[in-house]
Amino acid sequence: MSEKDGFEERLREARTRRGLDKPQATRGSPNSGPWGVGFRAGVEVVSALGVGVFLGIVLDRWLGTWPWLFLLFFVLGSAAGILNVYRLFSPRRGAGR
């Protein structure tokens, strides 16, 4: 048993020496690097804004209130986009999520 433990120890040392054990990737932010982070944030904002604008236009068509609901949902969509970006950078298992 001690022989096996010694082997595991030596294996781990050898792996660290050769740089085979990569540091544990941070959870929840897989696409790191400035371009990746910027792209993800941009996609989050644009998609939330798009959904908001889409909902606003559809509701306006339905209720005949153009352009008021569109304007309202434009603002709400922007807020949702900022919320998305905030969630992207805040630690995930925090309170209130």
Binding site: F39, E44, S47, A48, V51, L55, F73, L76, L83
Partner: peptide, 17 residues
Amino acid sequence: PIEVISYLSRPVSLSVR
């Protein structure tokens, strides 16, 4: 409404990315 929009934007951002 903000939370609902944020929830609905998930498939959009997932697919667009």
